[in-house]
């Protein structure tokens, strides 16, 4: 039993995870520095702002914490059955070997191992981020996926645990995305560079992932609206930019889908720079959806998906009738 409890809270002590206590601590420091030096607040009022009870203990936040617990248990049960990136990598590796490309590959034999490791780390991170952008964009554009993703967006206040405010079916989709993106990059690099491939790490974590978290990735889901310079917001998503992504204002709909990098939003036309808004209203426009009810958060999306399926089935049937006539 104790072991299970340890597993549930393991993300707090795992540097691969965003809510690792070290990153949370650093995020608090960054938030305080921002409030004191850029917003000219006193240290005491900055501390009150960071640990604002109305944010951290709001009804929405409490439902985040409940979902964290439920989802961790669910994923511990489900994860052995999910596709792993190793399975995808092995499959792709086998396919790559049947392509006669050895001429090309021998040209790359002299690449030093350190160059291969840096290149792998960079490509791995960038491609992973790129697929996150697209999957996230689809989560917003396709009604069936939006029914799931709406759960995350129903949060009315944001805190670092809001990342776990995710419908488990969406979690499964994300795990497929991860397996696909990571498996293809791993196998391609192994095919080209063999055993020279390695990951540049700090504390056992991808150096770039580590940098993203150290730079305050936890503040994306918070009420601290840190903005970057305009030029930097085209490269990296600032916390304020992600908070706009959660805004109820129609002007902010379908903007800033990026995870760490803003370049995908910039290239594909969904970038929105941060704005000076004091009280951003967050959530989704849906009156019959209670964002604090756990039952609704888990079951409503299923109901919506079955409604969408029934609707398209009936329109398909009527289309069928027309063609029969």
């Amino acid at each position: 039993m104790l072991e299970y409890i340890g597993d549930i809270f393991h993300h707090f002590v795992d540097p691969k995870k965003r809510i690792f206590l070290g990153y949370l601590g650093l995020s608090i420091v960054i938030a305080l520095l921002w409030l004191v030096f850029f917003k000219k607040k006193g240290l005491k009022s900055a501390l009150f702002k960071v640990f604002d009870k109305k944010i951290l203990l709001s009804g929405s936040a409490i439902s985040d914490y409940k979902m964290f617990l439920i989802n961790r248990v669910l994923m511990l049960v489900l994860s052995p059955y999910l596709l792993t990136q190793l399975a995808v990598a092995t499959f792709f590796y086998y396919s790559l070997l049947s392509i006669p490309l050895s001429g090309l590959i021998s040209l790359l034999n002299d690449t030093p191992a350190i160059v291969v490791a840096i290149l792998f780390t960079f490509v791995f991170f960038t491609f992973d981020d790129f697929t996150k952008y697209w999957v996230h964009r689809w989560m917003h554009k396709w009604p069936v996926l939006w029914a799931l993703h709406k759960v995350h967006h129903s949060a009315e206040t944001l805190n670092p645990i809001t990342v776990y405010r995710t419908h488990p079916l969406e979690g499964i989709l994300f795990s497929f995305r991860g397996a696909f993106s990571q498996g293809t990059v791993i196998s391609t690099f192994f095919f080209i560079f063999g055993d020279k491939v390695d990951l540049v790490t700090i504390l056992g974590v991808n150096f770039l992932v580590f940098s993203f978290h150290v730079a305050g990735s936890n503040l994306r889901h918070s009420h601290i609206d840190i903005k970057y310079w305009v030029w930097l917001e085209k490269i990296l998503i600032s916390p304020a930019q992600h908070q706009l992504h959660h805004s109820l204002d129609e002007r902010h709909y379908d903007k800033n889908f990026g995870a760490a990098l803003a370049i995908w939003d910039w290239i594909f036309g969904s970038l929105h720079h941060s704005e000076d808004i004091d009280n951003l209203i967050l959530g989704v426009e849906d009156n019959d959806f209670d964002p604090t009810s756990i039952t609704e958060l888990y079951l409503k999306p299923m109901k919506e998906i079955s409604d969408i399926a029934a609707e398209s089935l009936s329109s398909f049937k009527s289309l069928n009738k027309i063609f029969k006539i």
Binding site: N71, S79, L82, Q85, F124, H152, G171, F174, S175, G178
Partner: peptide
Amino acid sequence: VGSSDSAEN
């Protein structure tokens, strides 16, 4: 690289 089998947005 670690697994990505976690429900996180």
